[in-house]
Amino acid sequence: MTPTPPRRRTARGLVGGALTAGLLLTGCARRSGVDARADQYPYRAFCTSMSAMLPPEACEGGTDALRARLLDPRTRAALRATAEAPGPGTGVGLWREVHPEDLQILRHTDPSVTGRRLADVLAGREPWDALCELLVTDPQAYVVCHTMDEDDVRAIMADPLVAIGSDSDIPIGPNHPRTYGTFPTFLGGYVRDAGVVDLAEAIRKLTSATASRFGLSDRGWIGRGSVADLVLLDPARIGHAGTYEHPDLRPTGVTHVFLAGEQVIADGESTGERRGRMLRSERR
């Protein structure tokens, strides 16, 4: 029997719908006096736990309860019906929004599936069954979902209320390339090459737009009274060649970095200085 893909909305519908809803909610919030803003990473794929594909009820009670549900044929079928139901807007998980070729396995205890798409590890199984069996083996598995639309990514990016943030994990083991290349990718691919925003606006999105949200009044700008957190870069070379298969590549075009006035990167190489520290808002 040929495996059948799950029902889903189009990728355009997934992100476009979220964008429209987000803009509407932000507009309503701002009209009511709430200073609502957002941030974004410059990629067309997001990263999350594989269990996020399931209806939330599947995960209630912890790992053992999840495994028991997925091992029971009737419960697994009932969860699939919920996950593929076209009506509900919430409480169904992300399964109906992806195709097997969209779902790339980022971390799993079985090394033979790590880095591969769900479509490539079906082995004759229905995609839903393959997903469930991967989760039974490793409930902590992580995936990258290639579902975003480039036009939406750029439209969100151009909005002056949207800053740039990595939403990244710690740089250990398999990772989304945003962990290593968010800011170089934005500056190289979207600012220099695509011209989504100009360089001055791009720098604001990377610095003061974020610092001000967190109440860090002495960060994100250069002048008397500010902390000397500085990056010297080459706009013609800035970028990141990392991929979803090989994300942990060094960015290009970053020459010098100073944290609180102390040089931590010199001519693209670490000086060995460790000057990072926890920052707390000055707001009370």
Rank of each mutant, 00 (worst) to 15 (best):
M148N: 15
A68H: 09
F186I: 05
L249R: 12
D110L: 03
C132Y: 08
G17W: 15
E133M: 02
M148I: 13
Q104H: 03
F46K: 00
G27K: 00
G253A: 12
A119K: 03
D35Q: 14
I238T: 03
V144D: 13
F183W: 06
D138C: 14
R96S: 10
R274T: 07
A36I: 06
I222L: 15
P160N: 02
A158D: 04
L103T: 14
D72K: 13
T255Q: 05
I265R: 00
T182Y: 07
P177Y: 04
T82G: 00
V113R: 14
L233I: 03
L70G: 09
A11L: 12
D248F: 01
P111D: 08
Y190D: 05
C28N: 03
L249Q: 12
P177T: 00
A266E: 13
N175F: 01
I203R: 03
R76P: 11
R219K: 15
A211S: 15
G89Q: 02
R116L: 13
T185R: 12
Q140S: 14
W128D: 11
G91R: 11
T2S: 07
D64L: 02
V15H: 00
R107N: 10
G173A: 13
H99T: 09
G62F: 05
S270M: 08
A38K: 12
T243C: 09
G22T: 01
P139S: 10
P42W: 02
S217T: 12
G115L: 01
L70F: 04
G189Q: 09
T75G: 02
T182M: 08
R277D: 07
D198A: 05
E269M: 00
L122Y: 02
V254I: 15
A65W: 04
C28M: 09
A194N: 04
Y244I: 06
V98N: 10
P174V: 07
I164Y: 02
I172C: 01
D198Q: 07
S208M: 01
R12A: 13
P56H: 05
E133T: 09
D248Q: 06
E282S: 02
L14R: 13
L70A: 07
L118K: 06
A77S: 15
Y43T: 09
R284K: 08
P235M: 06
Y43I: 07
T179Q: 05
A163E: 13
